[in-house]
């Protein structure tokens, strides 16, 4: 029983991390048809910025998380303004540009801080464990879940209550028609990149807590699973991404534990292919 509880909590923590990456990815793709291959790199930027602030910067943990999120958001906005925006009329080149950034950014991090994993300072309050139904669960799992839940609630409020949220929801359905109502949809593009970058880099800062260390390829490694979540949850659907994140995180943990190592990862990746084949419309409806 205690193993199941621990696996469930770890799976949910991992799912929370996936959600932080996938929610932005999903909004960006839903609105702009841009599959952002640099999204994992944004997570790494957030992770390293937080790590740097917490070690060299000497700030406390929470301030470091804020710093990491701010840096990641700025990087994401810069990416949209400098590279994605000038390529709007060349959709494929937008994807290629994010591929290039996705290669270059982790390499830059590696150049500055080396390829080895760096231990992430764990604040005393979050490094302990809690007893839950007979299992000892690390506190950081719950930190991630709480962060993901907060982001989910904030995103839902933003989408439901604000004018830009309305524009994003409409743009996911029919971007051209949004412009035909006199709305400069490009501002919404920058905004979803900012949101996506913020969520991913927050995820990066908290991933340091979850994994106990940061390394340059962490984000890129998570990206593929975030793709699974996005496709499973439906493009542009934040709630769908949340449900899918939980599912993928749990399946992966349990399958990895109870079957041969790696089968969980494998099953999730194969699931991506199966999903796309079974409901291609979920992804390519507008791309055809």
């Amino acid at each position: 029983m205690s193993t199941v509880v621990l696996l469930a909590c770890t799976g949910l923590g991992l799912g929370a991390l996936y959600f932080l990456v996938a929610s932005g990815l999903s909004l960006i793709f839903g609105l702009m048809d841009v599959l952002n291959f640099a999204h994992g790199a944004l997570l790494s930027v957030g992770a390293y910025a937080a790590w740097w602030a917490a070690t060299d910067g000497g700030t406390g943990f929470w301030l470091a998380v804020v710093f990491g999120t701010v840096v990641g958001t700025a990087a994401s906005v810069l990416l949209e303004l400098a590279l994605i925006r000038p390529l709007y009329v060349r959709p494929r080149d937008q994807i290629l540009a994010t591929v290039g950034v996705g290669l270059a950014l982790p390499a830059l991090l590696m150049g500055v801080w080396g390829s080895d994993a760096r231990p992430f300072p764990q604040p005393a309050a979050l490094s302990g464990t809690v007893g839950l139904l007979g299992a000892t669960v690390p506190v950081n799992r719950f930190v991630l879940m709480a962060a993901a839940l907060a982001v989910l609630v904030a995103l839902r409020l933003f989408l439901a209550r604000t004018r830009y949220g309305l524009i994003v929801r409409a743009g996911v359905e029919d971007r051209a028609m949004v412009t035909a109502l006199g709305i400069d949809v490009r501002r919404a593009f920058t905004l979803v990149f900012a949101i996506g970058g913020a969520a991913a880099s927050l995820g990066g800062a908290l991933a340091g807590l979850y994994f106990g260390s940061v390394n340059p390829s962490q984000g890129t490694g998570l990206l593929i699973f975030a793709f699974v979540v996005v496709v499973m949850g439906g493009m542009g659907s934040v709630t769908g991404a949340a449900v899918a994140s939980v599912g993928v995180g749990l399946v992966q943990q349990f399958a990895n534990y109870y079957t041969a190592a790696g089968l969980g990862d494998l099953s999730v990746v194969v699931l991506l292919a199966v999903l796309l084949l079974v409901k291609p419309r979920g992804l390519t409806g507008r791309l055809a």
Binding site: D33, L35, I95, I224, F227, V228, V231, A260, A261, G262, D265, L266, V269, V270, L272, A273, L276, L277, P280, L283, T284, L287, A288
Partner: peptide
């Protein structure tokens, strides 16, 4: 599947292969 869906399916299969080789 067509378009970006095709790209992602191929990515998924290749990733499955990469994981298999790694494990």
């Amino acid at each position: 599947v067509t378009g970006i869906g095709f790209s992602m399916v191929t990515l998924a299969f290749a990733q499955a292969g990469a994981i298999l080789v790694q494990r």
